[in-house]
Design a protein around this nucleic acid. Structure first.
Lengths: 206, 206, 206, 206
DNA sequence: AATGAATGAGACTTCATTCAT
DNA sequence: GATGAATGAAGTCTCATTCAT
């Protein structure tokens, strides 16, 4: 369901193979985690879906925790990148692009997988400091870029608040849509666009 | 951390005691679930914190699952009630009250809906149909009341969309605030109020 | 299903009540043991079926073991008595009566309950010396009476062997019929009568 | 006590080892079941006697139930085979061989069908449908072969009845002998032979 | 006499992890 | 690199028994 990455800068054939194997594990684990949760997915199930023996997984990962951490890393990298693309968008188009972004999120079911995993990750991050740290670091990155777009490119005040509210809204939307697939998504878009416009333009008055 | 309830309509002393004991278990379990997660919290830990033997918990609950379900029930009941209060608010004050509600959510850490337990519950609901069902039922209730307020009391069109967006925003905010306690909450309020106003008034144009 | 006994020689009303209560427990326990086995029948189930609280059963029986022992006693008493009746049968009718006894056993489903309990008891007796002892004592009694009938009343040699074979046959029949209720019982009777005759008359040659 | 089998058609060393391990478990479990009963024998005891960790047993058997089922299978297979041998016996010798069979049963304590395990199995079969089914299937096989021997080879009428009575007698004898090891077995043989002859020859008159 | 709340040991089972091959 | 046999701790749940009321 999810097997794009090949972050390896490897050149050796053996290292390439290694990276492939690691991705096999990560993909299998992601699937299992979505289906059964972090705790409900046993190493045996992951190994079977990865087409690999249980023992061999431990050649690539020190522990199950390490697999979780790697997935969180990979997943939050992907999320961060998506926001990063916004940096290169010219000022005039930004509001429009962000609004389209909202449409994508609302329309695409592709994020259902992602979002389900996200909930698992968020829950885990509450007691696993390592996960919490990874998440925090990534969030910092996203937040930073966003703020600079709002403050520098759009020249708006209160960049912090605008950033937090946008991120909250996107996060909440994603979660809500996974939980309620029956929602008619189309109808949300006009209202969302409107709100995006309001947040990203200087109408702000109290 | 959490020990308010006394829903018992009991009159007998023994029934009262029973209700007390049940609440002891529920409170202890809530604590443990927040601290260790649904699956990290063993019955032993819960029993110890409830001041009760493991075996005795099973006089009150058929299984650990049943405890989880009871907690979700209790928790989502509380959340639903909070939204239900809005029904009695007169039209003119509604936007204002909702905005204040956003402030409360942002300011108070105690809010159940923003609680850590909530994330655990959401994650669990993805694979536990019973939990999913409870959540869904409650959400239906909230959604219904909200829509009727927007459509009937405020006389606005697109009540569905407005409802979904508000609920998404509140949900996302709660989650984001638990994860980032360092956010300066105060600064969010003006922007949130503005958005609430926009959603609850008929400026809607695309 | 089984509640005849009232062995109490009691005169006091309170003792009568006591005996009644004890029989309630024994009857309930018999039922449960047949349905779930000795180990599968919890005290809770027995108590409920006896219309009595769990704790109160311990006023009458020291332990679950004691209940089992009491049942075995009662059950094997009943079985022994059935054989004892043979003593008063006149010589000429004995073969006929025994043959009829075989018919009864084969025809009556009433023994199914008994026989199911018997299997449970036999299995238990293999590791519970107390049960083994009770059973042994009763068997001794039955065997003794039988032998004396065969040797003294019928004047046959090898009374021991004849006794053992008859008891084996009856035991085996009972067990087989519980296990295979589909067997057409009627057809067995002529052959059984024939065998009874052979065992109880002096055709014995090798 | 019991470790004959090597049904494995395995050629690989690993498969051979696997079969060995499985037999270790089955042997250990048989021992424990005889000593403590199906429900008195904990997995811990079985594991210790099998020289294996508790957890590892679950690589070979899905559950304790599955172990019981496997033992019943093995045990009743052995019993069925013993009866199956009769098919190849020529007509004239049959009565004689059957009579000898009775002698063997009476004399040998090793006979599986008379083993203590058997009682345990019978008792269990009363509430465990899976066990009941295995037993029934085997019994069907034995009964079928027996009937065809009696009807076709010996040309006797009422093959059903004769079969049932013989099986009852053998079953009863086995049980009785386990319970009363003090019985002088030798003395039973002449009478048993006589009865076998009567059942397997056409003296039948009512 | 009677209740049922309460206990705690022990039952079966799962699972992350290790290690010989 | 690759396997899967093996471990043992820990998990959920049951149950005979006791005791305050």
């Amino acid at each position: 369901m999810n097997s794009v990455q090949n972050n390896s800068v490897a050149t050796t054939g053996s290292e390439k193979r290694r990276a492939q194997r690691i991705d096999q594990v990560l993909d299998a684990a992601s699937d299992c985690f979505v289906e059964f949760g972090f705790h409900g997915a046993g190493m045996a199930k992951i190994a079977k879906r990865a087409g690999m023996s249980v023992g061999h997984i431990y050649h690539y990962f020190e522990s199950k925790e390490a697999i979780i951490a790697a997935i969180v890393d990979r997943e939050s990298d992907a999320a961060a990148e998506r926001f990063a693309e916004l940096e290169s968008i010219p000022k005039e188009e930004l509001v429009h692009v962000m609004a389209e972004r909202a449409r994508d999120m609302v329309e695409s079911k592709a994020d259902a997988f992602q979002s389900a995993l996200n909930l698992e990750i968020l829950a885990e991050s509450q007691r696993n400091p390592q996960i919490a740290c990874i998440l925090h670091r990534q969030d910092e990155k996203v937040r930073g870029k966003f703020k600079s777009i709002i403050a520098d490119k759009l020249g708006l005040p209160e960049a912090d608040a605008r950033t937090e509210v946008i991120l909250s809204l996107f996060g909440g939307l994603a979660t809500r849509i996974v939980r309620h697939p029956e929602i008619e998504r189309e109808m949300l878009i006009p209202l969302l666009k409107q709100i995006m416009r309001q947040i990203l333009q200087d109408h702000a008055k109290d």
